[in-house]
Computed example of a mutant assay.
Amino acid sequence: MQNNQFKKGELYSFITGKASIAIARSLQKKFNAAGLQLTIEQWSVLYHLWKDDGKSQQDLCNATFRDKPSITRLVDNLEKLGLVQRVPSDSDRRINKIYVTKAAQKLQEQTMQLAEETLNEALSGVPPEHVDLCKEVLQKVYDNLK
């Protein structure tokens, strides 16, 4: 039995992630207003490194759902900004581990606070049980297509 409760136009706009794009745009505006020269894409890489520093570029691809060329470009730009450094792996010369610098560590608290503010604004008026249901449904969609 099909469970297609969307009209085609609604489905495509749902799939494109209007909410995700709106959140990203809002957060980017907050970064810009705070004088941070950081894109949302760069911040997402830093976010995963703050959680687990020293990831390989492949690990960052997996964590951020980006391809290798995109991660390479992002890491290159973060390196130019002095926010990350590549360190060759001890066990495999083909692998570089990516580490945040002190400059990036200084950005963590400020950017995470801006991200929290943005999410609070985005979820304003949404009951917690709806947020939980939404997470559950989106996880199921992801798992179905993984």
Results as ranks from 00 to 15, higher is better:
Leu114Tyr: 01
Leu49Met: 06
Gly9Leu: 13
Glu41Lys: 10
Trp43Thr: 00
Val84Tyr: 02
Lys30Trp: 00
Gln85Leu: 06
Gln113Glu: 15
Ala63Val: 07
Ala122Met: 08
Glu79Cys: 15
Asn32Arg: 13
Lys97Arg: 12
Lys97Cys: 03
Ile23Val: 12
Glu109His: 14
Leu107Cys: 03
Val137Gly: 07
Lys102Tyr: 03
Glu121Leu: 13
Gly35Arg: 06
Ser91Met: 15
Lys29Trp: 08
Leu119Cys: 07
Arg86Ser: 06
Gln110Tyr: 02
Ala104Ser: 02
Val45Asp: 04
Lys29Val: 08
Ser44Ala: 07
Ser89His: 05
Lys7Leu: 13
Gln58Ala: 06
Gln85Trp: 04
Thr101Cys: 03
Gly82Asn: 12
Asp59His: 07
Glu121Phe: 06
Phe65Glu: 11
Leu123Gln: 05
Phe65Asp: 13
Lys146His: 04
Lys68Trp: 07
Glu109Asp: 15
Ala34Gln: 11
Leu74Phe: 13
Gln108Phe: 04
Ile40Phe: 13
Cys61Lys: 04
Ile71Pro: 00
Lys102Gln: 13
Leu36His: 03
Ala24Ser: 11
Arg86Cys: 09
Leu119Ser: 04
Cys61Gln: 04
Lys29Arg: 07
Leu49Trp: 03
Leu60Thr: 00
Glu117Pro: 05
Lys8Ala: 08
Val141Thr: 07
Leu27Ser: 01
Arg86Thr: 09
Arg66Asp: 02
Ile95Asp: 01
Gln5Leu: 11
Lys68Asn: 14
Ala33Cys: 05
Tyr99Trp: 14
Ile15Glu: 13
Val87Tyr: 05
Asp143Cys: 07
Ser56Phe: 07
Ile95Cys: 06
Lys140Met: 11
Glu116Cys: 12
Ile23Asn: 01
Thr16Trp: 05
Asn96Arg: 08
Asn62Leu: 12
Asp53Leu: 05
Ala104Arg: 00
Pro69Glu: 05
Asn120Thr: 11
Tyr142Lys: 14
Pro127His: 05
Tyr12Cys: 13
Val75Glu: 02
Thr72Val: 12
Arg25Ala: 10
Ser13Ala: 04
Asn62Ala: 10
Ile21Arg: 05
Glu10Asn: 10
Lys146Gln: 08
Gln37His: 10
Leu46Ile: 08
Gln139Gly: 00
Met1Gly: 07
Leu107Met: 08
Leu46Glu: 08
Ser56Ile: 06
Ala115Met: 11
Gln2Glu: 11
Trp50Ile: 00
Leu11Lys: 12
Leu78Trp: 00
Leu60His: 01
Gln108Ser: 10
Lys18Ala: 03
Ala34Thr: 07
Phe65Lys: 09
Ser44His: 02
Pro127Gly: 04
Leu60Ile: 03
Asn62Arg: 09
Ala63Glu: 14
Thr118Trp: 01
Tyr47Pro: 00
Gln57Phe: 01
Gly82Ile: 14
Leu38Ile: 02
Pro88Trp: 13
Ser70Glu: 06
Val131Gln: 03
Leu38His: 00
Gln5His: 14
Gln5Ala: 06
